[in-house]
Write a protein that binds this DNA or RNA. Structure first.
Lengths: 196, 196
DNA sequence: GCTGGAAGTTACAGACCGGTAACACCCTAG
DNA sequence: CTAGGGTGTTACCGGTCTGTAACTTCCAGC
C-alpha cells in the first residue's frame, strides 16, 4: 500500500507522491512532515533538502495534482477527436465518476478552506490553477458551439464544485446523485439557445 | 478595556460566540482553545467546565450556526406571507448576499474538509444539519408549486455550495458572480415544466 | 456576615509541530 | 582508488497543542 509508493524511486518523488496522498486523505494541517517522510520511507532532513518548507511542499503537491488532472483533457480529445460536444459529455461523465471515487472533495478547495492566511503562497497557486481549469471548460463549451459558453461553463463548474462538497458533507447518496441529470439538462438547454 | 467584544454575558455564551467567529475566520485546526478563551476574556479551565472537549465545542458551534441561519426562513415567511414563490426568490437573493459577505465558505463544508476522521462527532452533526437544510428548500420549492421540487432544490443547493467554494478559491469576481442569473434561470425553467 | 458555587490563576503533563545541526554512510563518476 | 554529493541517523530547538490539578477569588442568596 504505502510500500507501493515507497518503491525505489528518487526520494523527492516519493515524498511528493506520499504527501499528495496524505494531504488528500487527512487534510494539510492533519499531516505532519514527520509522518510524510516516514510513509515515504525517508527522513525529515531529506525532505528539507528538496523543499524549503512545508508550505512549498504544499504548493508543489497542488501543482502536481493539477498536472495529473490536466491530462484528462487530452484523453477527451483522444477519445472523441474533433467532436467537442462529445468531449463535453465526456467531461460530465468523468466529473460524475470523480464524485464516487472517495468521500473527499477537491484538494484545492479543501486547501483553501484550511489555509486561511490571505497571503499564504498556496492561495495564489490555487486561484491560478482554478482559473486555468475554468478557461479550459469555457473553451470546450465555445468550441462545442454553445452560445453562452462562459455561462454554461461556469454553471457546470459550480454544480460540480457543489457536488464535491455535498459528497463530503452528506455523502454520495445525497443531492450529488443528480449531478449528471442536472448537467445534461443544462447542456441541452444551452444548445437550444441560439449560438453565435 | 474594550468591552465591546467581551461584553459581560455568561462565560459559556462568550466562549461559544468567540469560537464561532474564530473557527469561521481561521478554520478549526487553525485556532487553539487558548486563543479562544483569551479572546473571550476568560480562561481555559472555564472552557473545560462548560465543554468536555474541543470536539464538543466544535459541535456546539455548528449547531449554533445552524440555529442562527435557520431564522432566515422565518424572515422569508414574514416578508412574503403565504407567497412561497416570492420566498424562493428571497432565498436566492439571500444566498447571493452571503457570497459577498466574506471570502470564507460554508462553516459546515469547511469543517468537513478539515475533520477527516470518519467517526468524528462533528461529521454526523454536519450531515444531519445539511439534510435538514435540504428538506427546508425542497419544501419551499414544493409549496411554490414546482413540479420537480427535489431536483430544483438540489440543483439550487449544489449551485450555491459551489459558488461559496468558488468565492473561497478564486474570489468573489469569479463564476460566482453569475449565481443569481443561474438560479433565476433555473426557477423559470422548472416553472415552465408541467407539475405532477 | 456566612456560605457555596462559579469563575479566575498558575503551573504542569505529554504529545506533537516545523525546522536545523552535526555527523556517518553509501554509491557512483572520475 | 578516491573524491564528493546525495542520503540516512540522531539529537535537538523553541514553540504549540489539548487537557488537568490545585488553589484562590469573587459574588449572589440566605
Amino acid at each position: 500500500m504505502a510500500d507501493g509508493v515507497v518503491e525505489r524511486s528518487r526520494p523527492r518523488d516519493r515524498i511528493l507522491e506520499t504527501a499528495r496522498d496524505m494531504f488528500h486523505k487527512h487534510g494539510i494541517k492533519g499531516v505532519g512532515v514527520d509522518a510524510i517522510t516516514e510513509a515515504a520511507g525517508t527522513n525529515k532532513m531529506t525532505l528539507y533538502r528538496h523543499f524549503e518548507s512545508k508550505d512549498e511542499l504544499i504548493v508543489e503537491c497542488l501543482r502536481a495534482n493539477a498536472l495529473k488532472a490536466g491530462s484528462m483533457w487530452e484523453a477527451f480529445e483522444a477519445e472523441h477527436p474533433g467532436d467537442k460536444l462529445a468531449q463535453l459529455h465526456a467531461w460530465v461523465r468523468k466529473a460524475a465518476a470523480m464524485l464516487n471515487t472517495d468521500g473527499r472533495g477537491c484538494d484545492m478547495a479543501n486547501a483553501a478552506a484550511e489555509l486561511t492566511e490571505p497571503d499564504h503562497p498556496a492561495r495564489r497557486v490555487i486561484k491560478e490553477l482554478k482559473e486555468a481549469q475554468r478557461e479550459r471548460l469555457v473553451g470546450l463549451c465555445r468550441d462545442a458551439g454553445i452560445g453562452q459558453a462562459e455561462l454554461l461553463a461556469d454553471t457546470l463548474s459550480l454544480l460540480f464544485e457543489g457536488a464535491r462538497v455535498s459528497v463530503q458533507t452528506v455523502g454520495a447518496e445525497g443531492p450529488s446523485t443528480q449531478f449528471v441529470r442536472m448537467a445534461e439538462g443544462l447542456i441541452v438547454s444551452f444548445r437550444g439557445t441560439a449560438a453565435g
